[in-house]
């Protein structure tokens, strides 16, 4: 299982690299400029997928942590632990690129608006999970405490998603997932979809690498770990 995860992670990593390249070229060079925002809108191609992945990573984290909590699945804890730093990274990307987009568009890097604030709360949830999971000496009770935090934090996801509808905010509403026709030009839309795919594939690749590391660390004294070490990431 360890070898399989590592092998697939490598393949998916290359696939993600290809998609990132295609999406970036499409987004920066091929797509036309926006008639209102000019070229600043090109930040969309990294901002929207990063923001989406931050929520997706949290949903995966909470599901895995919940499974670890309820069924005492070790794999659940391992997946949840693997999600946390990655999710925090996506959230950070979404916040930084959002600020860099907000400055030319809204005239400010930051505003305490519902969407921005709830996304910041998401960052703290990821960091809180990581801190709590590592804080307790007993790894299993640490995982349990962190899982409770993760499950409570799930209420933040619908708040982030619907914040642009529930409150009057500076942040615009969804333009891609709108039912019927998306309110965006096809030449703009295709690179965006490629970037979404790239971020998703990248997420799975890094997750597999992290989980396989976690397994290796946990079972380092077993025979298969020794064999993997001898074959340098070989079979198991």
């Amino acid at each position: 299982m360890y070898g399989l995860a590592a092998r697939w992670a490598g393949r998916l990593g290359w696939a993600a690299l290809g998609l990132f390249a295609a999406g970036t070229v499409g987004g920066l060079a091929l797509a036309p400029a926006d008639y209102q925002m000019g070229d600043s809108y090109r930040i969309l191609y990294v901002h929207a997928p990063a923001a989406w992945m931050s929520m997706f990573a949290y949903a995966v984290l909470a599901t895995a942590a919940g499974a670890g909590l309820v069924w005492r699945m070790k794999l659940g804890d391992a997946v949840a632990r693997a999600c946390a730093p990655l999710g925090a990274a996506f959230t950070l990307c979404a916040l930084v690129t959002g600020a860099l987009w907000g400055r030319p568009t809204w005239g400010t890097y930051w505003v305490w608006d519902a969407r921005l604030t709830s996304e910041l709360v998401l960052l703290f949830l990821f960091l809180g999970y990581m801190a709590l999971a590592e804080a307790l000496d007993d790894r299993r009770s640490g995982a349990r405490a962190a899982a409770v935090l993760a499950l409570v934090g799930v209420v933040n996801l619908p708040i982030i998603h619907f914040s642009v509808e529930w409150w009057n905010t500076l942040h615009q509403g969804a333009s891609v997932t709108r039912l019927g026709r998306p309110s965006i030009d096809t030449r703009m839309l295709i690179p965006l979809l490629i970037m979404f795919a790239a971020f998703n594939v990248y997420f799975v690749a890094v997750l597999l690498n992290r989980v396989s590391c976690e397994l290796l660390e946990r079972e380092r004294r077993t025979r298969w770990a020794a064999e993997a070490a001898r074959g340098r990431g070989g079979h198991a």
């Binding site: 990593g13 070229d39 600043s40 990294v46 730093p85 860099l100």
Partner: peptide, 17 residues
């Protein structure tokens, strides 16, 4: 704004990988 956005994302994603 554009290049630092892409730079930050690239740096973070490479580090995470």
């Amino acid at each position: 704004f554009v290049w630092s956005s892409y730079g930050v994302v690239a740096a973070v994603l490479i580090q995470q990988y």
